[in-house]
């Protein structure tokens, strides 16, 4: 038996919004620890991982691990039927269930909606992601700043270079119409309302596809802050963490490299 109830549908709606433009379908792996998925996009440029830990849920029961193959567009359609303040309960049989039940209940518990989502058999392979905490450079910024930087630059072109030196990050773009750049300095005071922090072991300069950096802005409502971790020649890791360590959405983006 798998049963998980979120107090408000907003949490899962936001998480799905952050991943559904990158992956069409994925296995939602349920375990005693929580709900998680990982999937690559078709061109194998971006890997998306998501975790909703058991403490994110008001009720969480997973007697034994199960994997629910879900079409992201379909689950999003069903969740559109939940108001943001409605609670969401997901129920599935852990013995080869062919559908999952979604129950939406309003705050006054006098309106209850039931939906069944057909599950799919998805043949996906799990990738082993190096737990590399030894990044050359880590920058944390308000997620609204992230949105502004990459929605602006990706309009100019798709080749975006991130260069991080001591206390400064430079984001630059080259496009057909011209180019542009933006420098962001570490904020001086720890009391600053919207701090930017930059930790550099070694300066790093890498280039990434702007289209993806812009798509990741869909995760901005999840989190007030975003962390970008860079190591020369390796995928960029971007993390949006849910409040109260309830979970996260992480993206790994392959760099553009010299031919």
């Amino acid at each position: 038996m798998f049963e998980a109830k979120l107090t408000e549908s907003t949490t899962i709606k936001r998480v799905l919004d952050a991943i559904k433009d990158l992956i069409q379908q994925a296995n939602f792996d349920c375990s005693a620890d929580g709900l998680s998925l990982q999937a690559m996009d078709t061109p194998h440029v971006c890997l998306t991982t998501m975790t909703l830990r058991s403490q994110a849920f008001e009720v969480y029961r997973c007697d034994r691990p199960l994997s629910m193959g879900i079409n992201l567009s379909s689950i999003s359609k069903i969740l559109k039927c939940a108001a943001s303040k409605d609670s969401v309960k997901i129920v599935a049989d852990d013995e080869g269930a062919d559908c999952a039940e979604f129950i939406f209940e309003n705050e006054s518990a006098d309106r209850i909606a039931h939906f069944e989502l057909k599950l799919m058999d998805i043949d996906s392979e799990h990738l082993s992601i190096p737990e590399d905490s030894d990044y050359q450079a880590i920058i944390s910024m308000p997620s609204a700043e992230y949105r502004r930087i990459f929605s602006d630059l990706s309009i100019i072109g798709d080749t975006i270079t991130i260069e991080i030196n001591k206390n400064t990050a430079c984001f630059s773009v080259e496009g057909d119409i011209g180019n542009g750049s933006l420098n962001l300095a570490q904020t001086d005071s720890a009391d600053e309302k919207n701090p930017v922090t930059i930790n550099v072991k070694e300066p790093v300069k890498m280039t990434f596809p702007g289209k993806y950096l812009n798509t990741f802005t869909k995760a901005v409502p999840i989190s007030e802050f975003v962390t970008l971790c860079l190591t020369d020649g390796n995928p960029l890791a971007i993390e949006f963490s849910l409040p109260d360590e309830a979970g996260f959405v992480r993206y790994f983006l392959a760099p553009k490299i010299d031919q």
């Binding site: 890997l47 990738l127 995928p235 490299i257």
Partner: peptide, 14 residues
Amino acid sequence: PKQQSTLLSFFSPK
């Protein structure tokens, strides 16, 4: 010019 790499060279299947 730079070329887009893929993740297949970085992450191995479990």
